[in-house]
Design a protein around this nucleic acid. Structure first.
Length: 262
DNA sequence: AGTACCACCTGACGGC
DNA sequence: TGCCGTCAGGTGGTAC
């Protein structure tokens, strides 16, 4: 689930639920989640401190603790955050728990254990360590065009490549290409300039709209592809039927009638 | 450089 | 009802 809009929502939730709360300890229930650190080291860095501020970059959440220490939180496929009032009621799939001195907690849940949490020195280190390209909501039109025109691969693969542009996953890649009227198999270097500009503005529009709806896809406007992800479903543009193909091994939904192949 | 698989995990769903 | 294969919105590695 967690792509850029979801992580943006997690950031707001994180800020709201950790603000001004002193960290008493960190409990790790699943070591696999930790990358390059340990429960002991985490506690050493966090105990007695506060989360000062957070930032989102791509699909990552950066939680700053001190001038030279912070957390890199990645939500994998099933990661989620849940604030806890009662520490005796820890949600299922809690892999790590921040315990605050006021008796509250924040659970990092992750059913499939693909998420991870690591210690980083700062925001820049998070970006370089994960080899992340420019954030999808901060990239300029010029940078966007340049990156995509330099690639001969399929546009959907390019959009999903976190080291080129970071934040877009399978779901939103399909949505953006659908709304921009571009076939997902189009080659990056063959998309005309004006279509590229449309793709850029569509990417911004889709991501911002998703954030506006708190990434709750059920509430998205009916002309979005997102709630029509079924084979043979009518295209929201009522021009044809939704097709399914595989790109990069990922299920891809699109409308052959309104998405042009370049 | 681009692509095609496999792997990591767990649960839900459809077919038989 | 029960077993089994397949699939899921992410990422990383390997090999052609």
């Amino acid at each position: 689930m967690p792509e850029l809009p979801d992580v943006s929502v997690f950031k707001d939730y994180f800020d709201k639920t950790t603000f001004k709360k002193k960290i008493e300890r960190v409990e790790v229930f699943e070591k696999r989640i930790l990358k390059g650190t340990s429960e002991k080291e985490l506690n050493k860095s966090l105990k007695g401190n506060f989360f000062k501020k957070s930032d989102r970059y791509g699909k990552h959440l950066f939680a700053e603790i001190g001038p030279d220490v912070g957390l890199d939180i990645h939500f994998g496929m099933t990661g989620d955050l849940e604030h806890i009032d009662d520490l005796s009621k820890i949600p299922p799939y809690t892999r790590l728990l921040f315990v605050f001195q006021n008796g509250e907690g924040l659970a990092f849940e992750d059913q499939r254990k693909f998420g991870h949490i690591s210690l980083v020195h700062n925001f820049d280190e998070l970006i370089s360590q994960n080899n992340l390209g420019i954030d999808a909501l901060n990239i300029t039109a010029e940078e966007f065009l340049e990156i995509i025109h330099a690639k001969k691969g399929k546009i959907k693969s390019i959009l999903m490549n976190q080291s080129l542009i970071s934040g877009i996953g399978n779901l939103y890649a399909d949505e953006i290409l659908f709304q921009a009227g571009i076939h997902p198999k189009s080659k990056g270097n063959q998309i005309p300039e004006d279509i590229m500009k449309k793709l850029f503005s569509t990417m911004n529009k889709v991501l911002k709209t998703a954030i506006k709806y708190v990434a709750k896809t059920d509430d998205f406007p009916p002309d979005f592809l997102i709630n029509h992800r079924k084979e043979n479903e009518d295209c929201p543009g009522s021009c044809g039927k939704i097709d399914i193909i595989k790109i990069n091994g990922r299920t891809t939904y699109f409308c052959d009638a309104c998405q042009e192949l370049y």
